[in-house]
Design a protein around this nucleic acid. Structure first.
Lengths: 216, 216
DNA sequence: GGATAATGTAGAACAAGTTTCAGACTTGAT
DNA sequence: ATCAAGTCTGAAACTTGTTCTACATTATCC
């Protein structure tokens, strides 16, 4: 029996009416659509507004900047991916293998829409302080996916959370290098597998590496 | 006796005249200056041109985009840092400790000019394919710094290079989270130390983690 | 059901990155 | 010294993210 993962929820500040919810969805859909065509640059605010059947000013009321919009788009896509991934949990025995498998599955999904991936990841890493809350939500979602894949029996230790953070760093940065054509798919795979070794290293009971003396 | 590190050189396509070299330096200086004031947004091409005493068109001849300019600025700063770091090599015994120490030293340097760091790192991760060669140069420089810090006795193995790649990923991404206020300095330190454990893990002769069966 | 505040629309206006162009200045070869 | 090719300048134009304004529509509350 694995630990129950807490749901990652957006604060959802003011409740939206039905039509507002519909507008919001139309906007996110248009954003993803345009992103799929031509990546970050192809998501032009006027075009998003037009495709969503909404005035430019309204678009900006829902998403205060292009980066906000794309990060929200990423949130949206990640939700889908999370539920999809949960349906077929990874097969590996070791937590490290399961995490690597899960991330590679996600990576293959991104490969099917490389332009969309480009738009979302570039927005994510370009986001400044004003987008912190939204980026944080994405980060929590990613963390949840990784912890899910680990399938822990107990709540993660601080060490394990550090490992997960590093995996997340590597995941984002490796995606960037792939998207900008500086690393091959194979290279990304190796990087992911390499960083996932940290999971074994930080498993409770594992021989600790440098500073901590083992208890045994 | 440690392995001699190869110098990381820029291809330096057409040789520049003295005045051109001077212009280039003025531009880079202006860029760093403005970046130090207000980060990425404060580096405005018209202002850079004016501060460097150069026409806008000339600026664009030297650096075909703002991102190119800032990545070149980063290259420049990294060169400085590399030579500075080499003067006082890290003190730790283990390679992992030395790398962590070196990166933390670099991190403290960045903390002294957080706006400059912001401009450079944001440009680096936002760069698209058209900037790949320049970004690659920065990456090679960073790799050189890390390998230097490891102080290897032999050329790095493929495994070690993977570990270095992952460390680089973590380094960039951790900087981003710090710059956007989503992680504290302490958090960055932990992430760096965590990822540096991979170095011990991939040292030749170390007990390999998951897939490779140990030889001993 | 009507007053009123919030939300949405169309479109102009503004800001900063990028492009373009005509003319002046350098440079290198003859 | 001079000519041609390449470079630099100043200024305008263009693009796209963002803001603003005046007016229409919708929602909420009495």
């Amino acid at each position: 029996m694995t630990v129950e993962a807490k749901a990652v929820t957006t604060p959802a500040s003011p409740p939206l009416t039905e039509r507002q919810e519909a507008r919001r969805r139309r906007i996110l859909h248009a954003s993803a659509q345009l992103a799929s065509r031509g990546g970050f640059d192809a998501v032009q605010m006027r075009e998003v507004a037009e495709a969503a059947g909404v005035a430019l000013g309204t678009l900006y009321r829902y998403f205060p900047s292009k980066v906000h919009l794309l990060v929200a788009t990423m949130q949206d896509q990640l939700q889908h991916m999370h539920t999809t991934l949960r349906k077929r949990p990874p097969a590996g025995q070791e937590p490290a293998a399961r995490v690597a498998e899960t991330l590679m599955r996600a990576f293959r999904a991104l490969q099917r829409e490389p332009h969309l991936a480009d738009a979302m990841v570039r927005a994510l890493t370009f986001a400044d302080r004003s987008v912190s809350p939204e980026v944080d939500t994405v980060s929590r979602l990613t963390t949840a996916i990784i912890l899910d894949a680990m399938g822990l029996d107990a709540p993660p230790t601080a060490e394990q959370l550090s490992a997960v953070r590093v995996i997340e760093h590597t995941w984002h940065s490796a995606l960037i290098t792939w998207l900008s054509g500086r690393a091959s798919i194979a290279q990304v795979k190796i990087d992911i597998e390499t960083v996932c070794r940290l999971i074994d290293l930080t498993a409770p009971g594992a021989a600790a590496a440098a500073p901590t003396p083992r208890k045994s």
